[in-house]
Amino acid sequence: MENKVLGAFTAIILAVVIAMSCLLIYVPNMHIIALKVQDSKLSGGRVSVMDMLRNSDEELQDDSEEIVQDILKGHQIRLTLPQNVTSKGVSIINDYVNRNIAITINGIGKDYFSKYPMRGNADNIVDVIYDSENLIGVIEIALDDVKEVQMTSEGEYIYLDFLDPHDVYDYVVVVDAGHGGNVPGATKMGVNEKDLDLQFVLQLKRIFEQSGKNIGVYYTRTDDSNPSFEARVGLANDSEADLFLSIHNNSTASGRMSSINGTEVMYKGADTTGESRRFAALCLDKLINALGSKAKGTIVGDEVYIIRMSNAPVALVEVGFMTNAKELEKLQDNEYQKKTAGALYDAVVEYLYN
């Protein structure tokens, strides 16, 4: 009796296995759906769909060149849009510091990838995370390097390509606003250095955006965040920046208010090409002429991590002394900030183009 029961149970298990195998072979995309179900669940309902992309990558390698061209049209990733969604409902944010690209698509639900599998190759892609709430889907793509993302739309498909910055821009510059978050820097008369540094950077950002020059400018922060030193200089190194500019403000060693004032710029002394010193000297010259501030000179700053570790010519600008009452007042003035930003813009452009 026991042998009969065991035999029947074995037969049932075998039948189930055969049925599932047939489904995986004959039901379109069933294997992709199965992979998605097995994907690890993340916080907030977010799921990784990286296995789907890896699986697509392997399939494309087995297909003929004509099939791959028909699917990807020469692009890296293809996403399919539902009938009620157009490319106008797609927006992209590239977080260069954290190597993360967020693609928001209005009108797609939690079952989006089950219905519309992602196709393409996984080059430079570490992970793909998906979540949807109120029919607003967000695809987060983690990269292993700094990349520019380009989107192309064609009918029901959108195509994505991840490009090296120098394939897009003539030059690449990284601009760093010192301090941030819970690290305020110098604090005098209720003013935090981190806020002044950011204001100078935001003024410089406006100038670059209006310049019309083909310069890719990446910012370590444009808000009250505090990226690590490694992330700041890492952005410059990984993007193979042509220049790295960090903006700070100074104070006396004691931190007491004094008559000491002026502008100084730090550079990488270990840069045997002399390019870091040349860039620093150019920044100082432009600032002194624009602001009328006292020249405190250019000094070796290799003890500063981001200067020491930078592969690109680097200049760390100390615009003025917050421990000088008159200079602190100037540093807070909007017109003074614009002049500072204009001078630094001129220094960057002159270095790159002349």
Rank of each mutant, 00 (worst) to 15 (best):
G109Q: 06
I12V: 15
I260G: 02
A8P: 04
A122W: 11
G269F: 12
S153L: 01
Q76K: 06
S246D: 05
L316C: 04
Y305S: 10
D176G: 03
M189Y: 13
I141D: 14
I260W: 10
V138K: 09
V317M: 03
V37L: 12
G155L: 09
G297V: 13
M322Q: 05
G107M: 08
R99F: 05
I12Y: 05
T263S: 00
S132Y: 03
E2K: 02
K73C: 10
Q199C: 05
E59K: 08
V191G: 02
S246I: 06
Y345Q: 12
D333E: 15
V265T: 14
A315E: 01
A290H: 06
C22F: 07
S246M: 06
T152K: 10
I105V: 14
L291Y: 12
M266C: 04
E154A: 13
Y305H: 11
D70V: 03
K294F: 07
I67G: 05
L287A: 00
T273K: 04
L245H: 09
A8D: 05
S259C: 05
S293F: 06
C22T: 11
S64V: 12
L53K: 06
G74R: 03
A177G: 11
I129G: 09
Y218T: 04
N182M: 04
E303F: 14
F162C: 00
V233N: 00
L352K: 00
E133K: 15
V173L: 07
Y305C: 06
K41Y: 08
S132D: 01
G216Q: 02
V172M: 07
H166Y: 01
S132F: 03
I288V: 07
G178K: 01
V191W: 12
M50C: 06
N98C: 07
F229D: 11
K88W: 00
N311Q: 13
A347K: 14
K36L: 11
E329T: 13
K110P: 00
R206F: 05
V304G: 02
S225Q: 14
V172G: 08
V146H: 08
